[in-house]
């Protein structure tokens, strides 16, 4: 069965590149352009993995992550956080809030793909 991946980011060009990348790896792809939409889509379609941008309008990635992790029904959803702010505190905060992995932008596509695959095989 195809794994389902949700891309949550407000930068259209990044969404385009991530969507292409994920589809090429054979995943089913859904897109959300802000934090609220991300939460709504996660609840509705239960993706296997979320590529979650931190700096998003309406709800930040941290808030989305916290909300998902506080709901036991969605314990199976893997979260990979992406941020353009590369500070260590941000990484620590994301992991503390329950993200499974963390990558800083700009990322290497190969590394991202590896990480996604690892997360989905666990």
């Amino acid at each position: 069965m195809d794994k389902k991946v949700l891309i949550a980011d407000d930068e259209q060009n990044i969404v385009i590149s991530l969507e292409f990348l994920m589809k090429r790896e054979g995943y089913q792809v859904e897109v959300a352009n802000d934090g609220e939409e991300a939460v709504r889509r996660i609840r509705a379609s239960r993706p296997d993995l979320v590529l979650l941008d931190v700096m998003m309008p309406k709800k930040s990635g941290f808030e989305v992550c916290q909300e998902i992790r506080s709901d036991p029904e969605m314990a199976g959803v893997r979260i990979l956080m992406l941020t353009a702010k590369g500070r260590d505190t941000e990484v620590a905060k994301g992991l503390a809030l329950g993200a499974d992995a963390y990558m800083t932008k700009p990322f290497s596509t190969r590394e991202l793909v590896d990480k996604v695959r690892n997360l989905l095989e666990q």
Binding site: L18, R24, K105
Partner: peptide, 20 residues
């Protein structure tokens, strides 16, 4: 921090698309 963010965001698309 803001400048970094603003620089990294376009770089992300450029790098991802070029690598692909």
């Amino acid at each position: 921090s803001s400048v970094t963010h603003e620089l990294r965001t376009p770089l992300t698309s450029i790098r991802a698309l070029s690598e692909m």
